[in-house]
Amino acid sequence: MEIKIAVKNLNAFYGKNKVLKNVSIDIPQNKVLAIIGPSGCGKSTFLRCLNRMHEVVGGTVQGSIMLDGEDITRKDPVLVRRRLGMIFQKPNPFPTMSIFDNVAAGLKYNGKTDKKETAEIVEKSLKQAALWDEVKDSLEQSGINLSGGQQQRLCIARTLAIQPEVILMDEPASALDPISTTKIEDLIFELKKNYTIVIVTHNMQQASRVSDFTAFLYMGELIEYDATKKIFTSPELKQTEDYVRGRFG
């Protein structure tokens, strides 16, 4: 199994507040890693460290994050983010853009201007995100008018269009209804053929359904990290078992 991202001794801060303590995780390629833990355990922060979004809200980081052997904490965040796409909790299409422009946004502002190529990538991305059939006749309309689930798949298409290697998902289905959630989960299953996926979720069932590996974070510390099956059936630690059985958190 190849390691895509190797996180070593990661500490993250908000001001003087330490929100991640010495977290080390190896994230395998073309697998789905689920991060679980109670609110405030630092799981979103962990995700945001991976594509240098933590610093956008004024946070600081210590430690190393190796992506294919390169330490991304030393690289240009703009370049890092093109390799690690991110899906946010709330679907957030750009309100001033059409569906087409939304998907093309990353390309356009990264300097790709060839119209034909852009159109091809937009179509391919929308197909990958399982949205093409629903929107192919209304590409010029605003993305805002889609349903929540469609918006989230639009955001996934937008991320896919910049052809990242890793997709980070921050509770991507928590704002959606059950049917849309199922669609997103199916999509994750499809996507892991080509991408490495890290998903943060507070939904235990979702974690067990979609992920290959699961990491349990608590109070900023990595408590247990193992194959999803193991975490949910016979975890090493009592604390983990209590959490996945819903006894606290």
Binding site: V56, V78, V80, R81, F94, G106, Y109
Partner: peptide
């Protein structure tokens, strides 16, 4: 302008 909009754009690798 919502911060989420900025974050989305930045996460797509669009320079500030």
């Amino acid at each position: 302008v919502p911060q989420s909009l900025r974050e989305t754009a930045l996460s797509l690798g669009i320079p500030k």
